[in-house]
Amino acid sequence: MTTHPRPLSPHLQVYKPQITSLLSILHRLTGLFLSLGSVIIVAWLFSLAFAPETYGIFVESAHSLLGKAFLLAWAFCFFYHLSNGIRHLFWDMGRGFEMKNVRRSGWVVISTAIFLTAGIGCNLMYYTKASVLSQEQTAQPTIADVTYSVGTYSVTVTY
């Protein structure tokens, strides 16, 4: 069979990157990342309910530098997908389709996501190992006031 050279459509890299197209593919990428994250949430719940001896993995990971970097990336994906999702819902109502508004709402979305992710970053910096008491379900409860602090929030629990 002879093949004739046929014209190919231009590859992605010949197009000038635009806020519209970049944010569109970022919505899909963050959505995929969040779908993988939802598996971790289910694993966390399952560990909490049925396998307390494995719960340390989640605590250790959340305190490691790599784990915190992962949580920060997760936070960005969440806040971006959330705010861009709201932008999509406005489009679904037929609002904000003028190019000027599409670009403007794009910048609002990306700024919101970065701002909120920075807030989570501040919280994670203060999330230290000292606040962790016991990871074992079988630990004997003792009468004591323990104050947990995660960032600016603190919870006092009486055992």
């Binding site: 605590v59 379900q137 995660v150």
Partner: peptide
């Protein structure tokens, strides 16, 4: 929208402290 914002708030204020707090 409301459920996920609630969950992130819960993570920061209660769940992430330790296993007992989460339970």
């Amino acid at each position: 929208i409301p459920l996920s914002i609630w969950f992130v708030y819960a993570l920061l204020t209660a769940i992430m402290a330790d296993a007992n707090a989460a339970r």
